[in-house]
Design a protein around this nucleic acid. Structure first.
Lengths: 129, 129
DNA sequence: TTAAGTGTATTATATCACTTAATACACTAA
DNA sequence: TTAGTGTATTAAGTGATATAATACACTTAA
Protein backbone atom coordinates (compact mmCIF):
# COMPACT_ATOMS: atom_id res chain seq x y z
CA UNK A 1 0.00 0.00 0.00
CA UNK A 2 2.53 2.64 1.09
CA UNK A 3 -0.17 4.98 2.22
CA UNK A 4 0.46 8.05 4.29
CA UNK A 5 -2.10 10.22 6.04
CA UNK A 6 -1.07 13.85 6.45
CA UNK A 7 -3.33 16.69 7.51
CA UNK A 8 -6.37 14.50 7.04
CA UNK A 9 -5.36 13.71 3.48
CA UNK A 10 -4.42 10.30 2.18
CA UNK A 11 -1.39 10.01 -0.06
CA UNK A 12 -0.23 6.96 -2.02
CA UNK A 13 2.62 8.23 -4.16
CA UNK A 14 4.03 6.21 -7.03
CA UNK A 15 6.31 6.75 -9.98
CA UNK A 16 3.64 6.84 -12.67
CA UNK A 17 3.36 10.62 -12.45
CA UNK A 18 5.44 13.54 -11.20
CA UNK A 19 5.37 13.68 -7.41
CA UNK A 20 4.43 17.35 -7.30
CA UNK A 21 1.40 16.62 -9.47
CA UNK A 22 0.25 13.83 -7.21
CA UNK A 23 0.50 16.07 -4.17
CA UNK A 24 -1.28 18.85 -6.03
CA UNK A 25 -4.08 16.54 -7.17
CA UNK A 26 -4.63 15.07 -3.73
CA UNK A 27 -4.85 18.41 -1.95
CA UNK A 28 -7.04 19.88 -4.66
CA UNK A 29 -9.28 16.85 -4.52
CA UNK A 30 -9.64 17.16 -0.75
CA UNK A 31 -10.62 20.79 -1.13
CA UNK A 32 -13.08 20.10 -3.95
CA UNK A 33 -14.74 17.33 -2.01
CA UNK A 34 -15.01 19.54 1.04
CA UNK A 35 -12.96 17.13 3.12
CA UNK A 36 -10.93 20.08 4.32
CA UNK A 37 -12.83 23.02 5.80
CA UNK A 38 -12.43 26.44 4.22
CA UNK A 39 -9.81 28.56 5.96
CA UNK A 40 -8.16 25.51 7.47
CA UNK A 41 -4.39 25.24 7.65
CA UNK A 42 -2.70 22.48 5.71
CA UNK A 43 0.61 20.90 6.78
CA UNK A 44 3.71 23.02 6.37
CA UNK A 45 6.04 22.43 3.47
CA UNK A 46 8.63 20.78 5.69
CA UNK A 47 6.13 18.66 7.58
CA UNK A 48 4.52 17.42 4.38
CA UNK A 49 7.91 16.69 2.84
CA UNK A 50 9.04 14.72 5.86
CA UNK A 51 5.81 12.74 6.06
CA UNK A 52 5.84 11.85 2.36
CA UNK A 53 9.61 11.34 2.35
CA UNK A 54 10.09 13.69 -0.56
CA UNK A 55 12.01 16.91 -1.01
CA UNK A 56 10.59 20.19 0.39
CA UNK A 57 11.12 21.78 -3.01
CA UNK A 58 8.78 19.24 -4.55
CA UNK A 59 6.08 20.05 -2.00
CA UNK A 60 6.67 23.75 -2.60
CA UNK A 61 5.99 23.33 -6.27
CA UNK A 62 2.62 21.75 -5.54
CA UNK A 63 1.74 24.40 -2.96
CA UNK A 64 2.64 27.25 -5.30
CA UNK A 65 0.39 25.87 -8.00
CA UNK A 66 -2.45 25.65 -5.50
CA UNK A 67 -1.97 29.31 -4.65
CA UNK A 68 -1.81 30.31 -8.31
CA UNK A 69 -5.17 28.59 -8.74
CA UNK A 70 -6.52 30.58 -5.82
CA UNK A 71 -7.32 27.50 -3.79
CA UNK A 72 -4.93 28.43 -1.00
CA UNK A 73 -3.53 31.54 0.65
CA UNK A 74 -0.01 31.52 2.01
CA UNK A 75 1.04 33.68 4.93
CA UNK A 76 4.75 34.06 5.38
CA UNK A 77 5.76 32.79 8.77
CA UNK A 78 2.34 31.30 9.45
CA UNK A 79 1.60 28.63 6.91
CA UNK A 80 -0.63 27.70 3.99
CA UNK A 81 -4.41 27.95 4.37
CA UNK A 82 -7.37 26.86 2.30
CA UNK A 83 -9.17 29.81 0.78
CA UNK A 84 -12.33 31.02 2.55
CA UNK A 85 -14.00 31.83 -0.76
CA UNK A 86 -16.49 29.00 -1.35
CA UNK A 87 -17.43 30.37 -4.76
CA UNK A 88 -13.83 30.18 -5.92
CA UNK A 89 -13.68 26.53 -4.91
CA UNK A 90 -16.91 25.83 -6.73
CA UNK A 91 -15.69 27.48 -9.93
CA UNK A 92 -12.37 25.68 -9.99
CA UNK A 93 -14.04 22.37 -9.28
CA UNK A 94 -16.35 22.87 -12.21
CA UNK A 95 -13.55 24.06 -14.47
CA UNK A 96 -11.53 20.92 -13.75
CA UNK A 97 -14.59 18.81 -14.45
CA UNK A 98 -15.15 20.52 -17.78
CA UNK A 99 -11.56 19.97 -18.78
CA UNK A 100 -11.88 16.29 -17.94
CA UNK A 101 -15.09 16.03 -19.96
CA UNK A 102 -13.58 17.75 -22.98
CA UNK A 103 -10.52 15.55 -22.89
CA UNK A 104 -12.68 12.47 -22.50
CA UNK A 105 -14.99 13.31 -25.38
CA UNK A 106 -12.01 14.14 -27.59
CA UNK A 107 -10.37 10.81 -26.86
CA UNK A 108 -13.52 8.81 -27.49
CA UNK A 109 -14.14 10.84 -30.61
CA UNK A 110 -10.68 10.01 -31.91
CA UNK A 111 -11.62 6.36 -31.55
CA UNK A 112 -14.68 6.95 -33.68
CA UNK A 113 -17.33 6.68 -30.98
CA UNK A 114 -20.51 8.68 -31.41
CA UNK A 115 -22.03 10.55 -28.44
CA UNK A 116 -24.75 7.94 -28.05
CA UNK A 117 -22.21 5.14 -28.06
CA UNK A 118 -20.29 6.99 -25.34
CA UNK A 119 -23.49 7.22 -23.33
CA UNK A 120 -24.06 3.50 -23.74
CA UNK A 121 -20.59 2.67 -22.49
CA UNK A 122 -21.05 4.97 -19.52
CA UNK A 123 -24.35 3.34 -18.65
CA UNK A 124 -22.73 -0.09 -18.73
CA UNK A 125 -20.02 1.12 -16.37
CA UNK A 126 -20.94 3.78 -13.85
CA UNK A 127 -24.41 2.53 -13.03
CA UNK A 128 -26.97 4.82 -14.59
CA UNK A 129 -25.07 7.90 -15.89
CA UNK B 1 -1.44 24.74 -38.36
CA UNK B 2 1.71 22.77 -39.32
CA UNK B 3 -0.34 19.90 -40.60
CA UNK B 4 1.10 17.06 -42.61
CA UNK B 5 -0.81 14.39 -44.51
CA UNK B 6 1.00 11.08 -44.83
CA UNK B 7 -0.50 7.84 -45.97
CA UNK B 8 -3.97 9.29 -45.70
CA UNK B 9 -3.39 10.26 -42.08
CA UNK B 10 -3.31 13.79 -40.78
CA UNK B 11 -0.54 14.73 -38.36
CA UNK B 12 -0.20 17.94 -36.37
CA UNK B 13 2.71 17.33 -34.04
CA UNK B 14 3.43 19.59 -31.10
CA UNK B 15 5.57 19.54 -27.99
CA UNK B 16 2.81 18.84 -25.47
CA UNK B 17 3.43 15.10 -25.68
CA UNK B 18 6.18 12.70 -26.79
CA UNK B 19 6.40 12.58 -30.57
CA UNK B 20 6.28 8.80 -30.72
CA UNK B 21 3.02 8.84 -28.72
CA UNK B 22 1.44 11.32 -31.09
CA UNK B 23 2.37 9.20 -34.09
CA UNK B 24 1.11 6.10 -32.32
CA UNK B 25 -2.19 7.74 -31.37
CA UNK B 26 -2.82 9.06 -34.85
CA UNK B 27 -2.21 5.76 -36.61
CA UNK B 28 -4.20 3.84 -34.02
CA UNK B 29 -7.03 6.33 -34.33
CA UNK B 30 -7.06 5.96 -38.10
CA UNK B 31 -7.27 2.21 -37.76
CA UNK B 32 -9.99 2.33 -35.10
CA UNK B 33 -12.08 4.70 -37.18
CA UNK B 34 -11.66 2.49 -40.21
CA UNK B 35 -10.06 5.29 -42.19
CA UNK B 36 -7.37 2.85 -43.21
CA UNK B 37 -8.47 -0.42 -44.76
CA UNK B 38 -7.47 -3.68 -43.14
CA UNK B 39 -4.32 -5.16 -44.66
CA UNK B 40 -3.30 -1.84 -46.10
CA UNK B 41 0.33 -0.75 -46.07
CA UNK B 42 1.26 2.30 -44.07
CA UNK B 43 4.19 4.56 -44.95
CA UNK B 44 7.66 3.17 -44.34
CA UNK B 45 9.63 4.24 -41.31
CA UNK B 46 11.91 6.42 -43.40
CA UNK B 47 9.13 7.94 -45.46
CA UNK B 48 7.11 8.80 -42.36
CA UNK B 49 10.16 10.25 -40.62
CA UNK B 50 11.00 12.44 -43.57
CA UNK B 51 7.44 13.65 -44.01
CA UNK B 52 7.06 14.50 -40.32
CA UNK B 53 10.59 15.85 -40.07
CA UNK B 54 11.42 13.62 -37.12
CA UNK B 55 13.97 10.88 -36.54
CA UNK B 56 13.41 7.40 -38.00
CA UNK B 57 14.06 5.93 -34.56
CA UNK B 58 11.12 7.90 -33.19
CA UNK B 59 8.81 6.53 -35.88
CA UNK B 60 10.16 3.06 -35.21
CA UNK B 61 9.18 3.30 -31.58
CA UNK B 62 5.60 4.12 -32.53
CA UNK B 63 5.46 1.34 -35.13
CA UNK B 64 6.82 -1.23 -32.72
CA UNK B 65 4.16 -0.41 -30.17
CA UNK B 66 1.50 -0.79 -32.83
CA UNK B 67 2.81 -4.24 -33.62
CA UNK B 68 2.97 -5.20 -29.95
CA UNK B 69 -0.71 -4.25 -29.73
CA UNK B 70 -1.41 -6.48 -32.69
CA UNK B 71 -2.74 -3.65 -34.82
CA UNK B 72 -0.04 -4.03 -37.45
CA UNK B 73 2.10 -6.74 -38.95
CA UNK B 74 5.60 -5.98 -40.14
CA UNK B 75 7.26 -7.85 -42.97
CA UNK B 76 10.99 -7.40 -43.20
CA UNK B 77 11.89 -5.92 -46.53
CA UNK B 78 8.28 -5.19 -47.42
CA UNK B 79 6.84 -2.77 -44.94
CA UNK B 80 4.30 -2.34 -42.18
CA UNK B 81 0.70 -3.40 -42.78
CA UNK B 82 -2.56 -2.99 -40.91
CA UNK B 83 -3.78 -6.28 -39.47
CA UNK B 84 -6.47 -8.12 -41.40
CA UNK B 85 -8.13 -9.28 -38.20
CA UNK B 86 -11.22 -7.09 -37.82
CA UNK B 87 -12.06 -8.63 -34.46
CA UNK B 88 -8.67 -7.64 -33.07
CA UNK B 89 -9.25 -4.04 -34.12
CA UNK B 90 -12.67 -4.07 -32.55
CA UNK B 91 -11.35 -5.42 -29.25
CA UNK B 92 -8.52 -2.94 -29.00
CA UNK B 93 -10.81 -0.07 -29.87
CA UNK B 94 -13.15 -1.06 -27.09
CA UNK B 95 -10.32 -1.63 -24.64
CA UNK B 96 -8.99 1.87 -25.26
CA UNK B 97 -12.48 3.27 -24.80
CA UNK B 98 -12.90 1.48 -21.52
CA UNK B 99 -9.59 2.78 -20.26
CA UNK B 100 -10.65 6.30 -21.14
CA UNK B 101 -13.98 5.85 -19.39
CA UNK B 102 -12.36 4.48 -16.24
CA UNK B 103 -9.85 7.30 -16.12
CA UNK B 104 -12.60 9.83 -16.70
CA UNK B 105 -14.87 8.48 -13.99
CA UNK B 106 -11.96 8.29 -11.55
CA UNK B 107 -11.02 11.91 -12.16
CA UNK B 108 -14.57 13.17 -11.80
CA UNK B 109 -14.95 11.02 -8.72
CA UNK B 110 -11.87 12.54 -7.17
CA UNK B 111 -13.53 15.92 -7.62
CA UNK B 112 -16.54 14.66 -5.70
CA UNK B 113 -18.99 14.39 -8.57
CA UNK B 114 -21.70 11.76 -8.37
CA UNK B 115 -22.57 9.65 -11.44
CA UNK B 116 -25.76 11.65 -12.01
CA UNK B 117 -23.85 14.92 -11.85
CA UNK B 118 -21.41 13.54 -14.42
CA UNK B 119 -24.34 12.67 -16.63
CA UNK B 120 -25.71 16.19 -16.28
CA UNK B 121 -22.40 17.73 -17.29
CA UNK B 122 -22.17 15.41 -20.28
CA UNK B 123 -25.67 16.34 -21.37
CA UNK B 124 -24.81 20.05 -21.18
CA UNK B 125 -21.75 19.46 -23.34
CA UNK B 126 -21.88 16.69 -25.89
CA UNK B 127 -25.48 17.10 -26.93
CA UNK B 128 -27.57 14.32 -25.47
CA UNK B 129 -25.17 11.66 -24.09
C1' DT C 1 23.37 -10.12 -59.87
C1' DT C 2 22.44 -5.69 -58.62
C1' DA C 3 20.13 -1.83 -56.73
C1' DA C 4 16.69 0.26 -54.16
C1' DG C 5 13.61 0.08 -50.57
C1' DT C 6 12.04 -2.34 -46.51
C1' DG C 7 12.43 -3.31 -41.00
C1' DT C 8 15.84 -3.46 -37.33
C1' DA C 9 19.82 -2.74 -34.19
C1' DT C 10 23.55 -0.18 -32.07
C1' DT C 11 26.22 3.53 -30.18
C1' DA C 12 26.78 8.14 -29.02
C1' DT C 13 25.15 12.59 -27.91
C1' DA C 14 22.02 16.24 -26.40
C1' DT C 15 18.16 18.20 -24.09
C1' DC C 16 14.67 18.64 -20.84
C1' DA C 17 11.63 17.64 -16.78
C1' DC C 18 11.85 16.07 -12.42
C1' DT C 19 13.94 15.38 -8.02
C1' DT C 20 17.14 15.81 -4.42
C1' DA C 21 20.46 18.27 -1.51
C1' DA C 22 22.27 21.99 1.05
C1' DT C 23 21.92 26.49 2.44
C1' DA C 24 20.19 30.92 3.32
C1' DC C 25 16.82 34.69 4.02
C1' DA C 26 12.37 37.07 5.57
C1' DC C 27 8.66 36.74 8.38
C1' DT C 28 5.54 35.38 12.53
C1' DA C 29 4.35 33.80 17.01
C1' DA C 30 5.35 32.28 21.54
C1' DT D 1 15.28 34.99 21.48
C1' DT D 2 13.83 30.83 19.49
C1' DA D 3 11.31 27.82 16.72
C1' DG D 4 8.51 27.28 12.92
C1' DT D 5 6.66 29.35 8.77
C1' DG D 6 7.17 30.40 3.31
C1' DT D 7 10.67 31.34 -0.14
C1' DA D 8 14.89 31.54 -3.06
C1' DT D 9 19.19 29.87 -4.92
C1' DT D 10 22.70 26.85 -6.62
C1' DA D 11 24.34 22.40 -7.69
C1' DA D 12 23.92 17.79 -8.92
C1' DG D 13 21.86 13.44 -10.55
C1' DT D 14 18.50 10.61 -13.09
C1' DG D 15 15.50 9.14 -16.68
C1' DA D 16 12.68 9.85 -20.79
C1' DT D 17 12.84 11.66 -25.18
C1' DA D 18 14.95 12.72 -29.48
C1' DT D 19 18.56 13.06 -32.80
C1' DA D 20 22.54 11.45 -35.56
C1' DA D 21 25.23 8.23 -37.95
C1' DT D 22 25.92 3.52 -39.29
C1' DA D 23 25.25 -0.99 -40.24
C1' DC D 24 22.80 -5.37 -41.17
C1' DA D 25 19.10 -8.66 -42.94
C1' DC D 26 15.54 -9.12 -45.98
C1' DT D 27 12.45 -8.43 -50.30
C1' DT D 28 11.41 -6.90 -54.71
C1' DA D 29 12.23 -5.60 -59.24
C1' DA D 30 15.26 -4.22 -62.83
Amino acid sequence: MNEVIVGGMRFALDLSQPLYEQVLDQVRSSIAKGEIALGEKIPSVREMAQALKINPNTVMRAYQELERDGLTETRRGQGTFITTDAEKVRLIRYRLAEEAVDEFLAKLGSLGFTPSEVAAILRSKGGEA
